Amino acid sequence: MINVVDLFSGAGGLTFGFQKKIVRNRFVDDDRFNVIFANEYEKNAAYTFKMNFPGVPMIQEDIGELDLVYLQQMYLDISNVDIVIGGPPCQSYSTVGKRQYDNRARMYREYRRMLSILQPKLFIFENVLGLLTMKNDLGLPVIDDVVKSFNDFSEFNGAIGYTVQKKVLNAQDFGVPQSRERVFLVGVRKDLNLERDWCFPTAGAMQKHVSVGDAIGDLPELVNGAGTNHYTKHPYTKYQFLMRGNQKVLKNHVNGVNGRKILKIMEVVPEGEGRPYINQLVQKGKLAQEFYLTSGYGNSYGRLWWNRPSTTITNNLSTPSSLRCIHPKQNRALTSREGARLQSFPDNFIFYGSKEQVNSQIGNAVPSLLSMHLANSVIDFFESNKFIRQEG
């Protein structure tokens, strides 16, 4: 069994992949991993985690407050931590936003401090693609600071550093119906005697991408301001069967209330188009001047494609004016449950909080299916190096 700690866990997308596996297209418990504890500061995300992983101790606390004494007082056995997973807040690195090198951007230092305490054999650190282009206060690449900091832990009373590998993985290559690129850093402790180096998971050469339609086509249609907790169609794709499982009650499938202007914009924008298309209609006199959009990005007010994976799901997945989140076939933005489907959370995954808080949890998560592929790579690495302890 492999002992795991999840830092900055959020709702638990990464932990899901280390607690579940797929057997005959159904999620079942995976007893190869033992999650010792998870840490998340945001209370709603922490509560969501606790509801879905009741057997995992959740420390809902600022990570800066965690130290060896704190963990020992929680009666947690951290003497044999095999792997630490998780990624600090990504908003500071995101290419959508101000990109400030602020305290959130420096949270990797807290992650590193925890590594010095737990000294796992391996860590998996995840963050947005913008980490690769973010600059520090001196105008130098932040990614270089991060990688170098993981190499040398000598200031922590002689703690051992890590050899780090870096790779960009796209969730759509691993069965997730979403084009979502993320940076993964994997560190292997330098004192380990390895027979095989770490290998990132690779996508199947012939694997067909799962489309938005494949993912959410069985979910009920909704009009403006409507919601339902009833399934009205049977699943008809392998992915829908996997996500539905034995769930009988549909949760988090509620459409927002939109005004006349937004409804009209959604009515005229076709698949794959967005703000520039709307403004062209205005300029050509095909749409009234009041619909000219002066703010946003090129893919703001964007409609998704039915036969392609979605673009990256964000915290604003239910806001039509946000980044490409309008349903491909209906004149509305995505519901929270549709966002969860596109992040590969199954329908029985429970979210806690307001709709905005739930969408934040969904938008910030690591897709569950991608996490499963990472977990399988961890198993391969530990088995190849004979690191797995036999229980009993």
Score class of each variant (00 low, 15 high):
residue 12 G to K: 09
residue 12 G to T: 01
residue 13 G to P: 07
residue 15 T to A: 13
residue 18 F to P: 06
residue 19 Q to H: 15
residue 34 N to A: 09
residue 38 A to H: 02
residue 39 N to C: 13
residue 39 N to P: 00
residue 51 M to W: 02
residue 52 N to Q: 04
residue 53 F to C: 03
residue 53 F to P: 08
residue 62 D to Y: 01
residue 63 I to Q: 04
residue 64 G to R: 14
residue 65 E to S: 14
residue 69 V to F: 09
residue 75 Y to V: 04
residue 76 L to V: 06
residue 77 D to R: 01
residue 80 N to E: 14
residue 86 G to T: 03
residue 86 G to K: 07
residue 90 C to A: 10
residue 94 S to Q: 03
residue 95 T to L: 14
residue 97 G to E: 07
residue 99 R to D: 03
residue 102 D to M: 04
residue 104 R to Q: 13
residue 116 S to A: 12
residue 116 S to T: 02
residue 126 E to D: 04
residue 126 E to K: 03
residue 126 E to W: 02
residue 129 L to D: 10
residue 129 L to F: 12
residue 130 G to V: 05
residue 131 L to A: 14
residue 135 K to C: 11
residue 137 D to R: 10
residue 139 G to R: 06
residue 139 G to Q: 09
residue 140 L to F: 04
residue 145 D to N: 10
residue 146 V to Q: 01
residue 153 F to C: 04
residue 156 F to H: 07
residue 156 F to R: 00
residue 163 T to Q: 11
residue 167 K to C: 05
residue 169 L to G: 08
residue 174 F to M: 08
residue 176 V to W: 05
residue 177 P to M: 10
residue 179 S to N: 15
residue 183 V to I: 13
residue 189 R to L: 02
residue 189 R to N: 09
residue 193 N to M: 06
residue 194 L to H: 07
residue 201 P to I: 03
residue 203 A to Q: 11
residue 210 V to K: 09
residue 211 S to V: 02
residue 211 S to G: 06
residue 219 L to D: 13
residue 224 N to K: 13
residue 224 N to P: 15
residue 232 T to F: 08
residue 237 T to C: 11
residue 244 R to S: 03
residue 245 G to L: 01
residue 247 Q to C: 11
residue 256 G to E: 14
residue 256 G to R: 13
residue 258 N to P: 06
residue 264 K to R: 15
residue 266 M to D: 12
residue 266 M to H: 09
residue 269 V to S: 01
residue 270 P to M: 02
residue 273 E to K: 15
residue 274 G to C: 04
residue 279 N to Q: 09
residue 288 A to H: 14
residue 296 G to K: 01
residue 303 R to S: 11
residue 304 L to T: 05
residue 309 P to V: 12
residue 310 S to D: 12
residue 311 T to D: 13
residue 314 T to I: 03
residue 314 T to W: 07
residue 319 T to H: 09
residue 325 C to A: 05
residue 326 I to F: 04
residue 330 Q to S: 03
residue 330 Q to R: 05
residue 330 Q to K: 01
residue 331 N to K: 07
residue 341 R to E: 12
residue 342 L to E: 12
residue 344 S to C: 10
residue 346 P to K: 04
residue 347 D to M: 05
residue 347 D to H: 05
residue 354 S to N: 06
residue 362 I to Y: 07
residue 368 S to L: 14
residue 368 S to P: 03
residue 369 L to I: 15
residue 369 L to F: 10
residue 381 F to R: 08
residue 384 S to W: 07
residue 391 E to S: 15
residue 392 G to Y: 14
